[in-house]
Computed example of a mutant assay.
Amino acid sequence: MKSPTETSIGTMPVTHHIGHDGAALQPPFDAAIVIPTLLRPSLAQALRSIFAQENIGRLHILIGVDRAEGDIAAINPVFQEQPDNCVTTLVNLGYSTSTRHGGVHAAWDGGALRTILSYMANSRYVAYLDDDNWLAPDHVEKLLKAIQGHDYAYTLRWYVDPATLKPLCVDRLESVGPDAGGYKDSLRGFVDPNCLMLDKIACLAVLGLWSVPMKGDDTNLSADRQVFAALVQHFRGGPTHTPTVFYRLNELDKGYSKRLEWIARQSNKNAGTQ
């Protein structure tokens, strides 16, 4: 198994492939997963959840560094656990593409990285994962089944306590799919990027929107809404009907208090039925 030899992210090559000796790069992979990252420690858990994916063929993992808050050396040991069916492509441009860190693309959550890495992915089927979340072992398998006959596929997610990492309840408030949930009236629904898989050839026109927040959004964090609005309007989606993403709640998120209130109501309802 090859791994990055650099001790500092600043000296890492722009593109660096990690895979077993002789791993073929040219034949398209069965699926790809795109991860924009700040190299937070939680990236290790995210990667391990990808390495644990079951019943799939070859998997292409693409990690794009937005701005390094951590050191690649801390992540190096994780790649020793990468199975032979996976190849990871690390991309470090040496600068951030986001206006948040001095770049030119408006999206604060990674700038143009999701767009760039989506094009780079050597697979027609591209899923996404943030470096503070993780996946159930059947995540990719279920999405690949759901996307057959569709342009994109989506799955459900668990709300997770950030301190204990305990799943609290299935999110049926926000990331629930087209024409459903709390965004039904304003956006015709919503699916979190972590829960999406795109047929990037069918949805080619959508890829650039990962770097474009919605008009009037002063947080510049709504490119994911922009993407899903285009998907629900112009493309066909297939659901898995299963929660396969573990979404770590963040008290700094704008909707954090609303999520806690909803989770509390679900807890009370469940207690009342026991």
Rank of each mutant, 00 (worst) to 15 (best):
K2V: 14
S3N: 10
S3V: 14
P4S: 00
T5W: 02
E6F: 12
E6D: 11
E6S: 15
T11S: 05
T11L: 04
H17Q: 12
D21R: 15
D30Q: 01
A31D: 01
V34N: 14
T37V: 12
L39V: 04
Q45M: 07
Q45F: 05
A46N: 11
S49G: 04
F51Q: 00
Q53F: 15
L59E: 07
L62D: 05
E69C: 02
D71L: 14
I72V: 00
V78P: 00
V78G: 05
V78D: 00
Q80C: 07
Q80M: 03
E81L: 02
P83L: 12
Y95K: 00
S98L: 09
T99E: 15
R100M: 12
A106L: 11
G111P: 00
R114M: 14
T115I: 03
I116G: 02
N122I: 03
Y125E: 05
V126E: 03
Y128A: 09
L129K: 10
D132S: 12
N133T: 14
N133Q: 09
W134T: 07
P137V: 15
P137M: 15
D138T: 15
V140E: 07
K142Y: 05
I147V: 15
Y154V: 10
R157M: 14
W158T: 08
V160F: 11
A163M: 09
L165V: 02
R172D: 05
E174C: 03
P178S: 06
P178G: 01
G182M: 12
F190S: 06
C195N: 09
L196T: 00
A205L: 03
V212K: 03
D217L: 15
N220C: 15
L231E: 09
T240Y: 12
P243F: 11
Y247W: 14
E251T: 08
D253G: 02
K258W: 00
N270K: 09
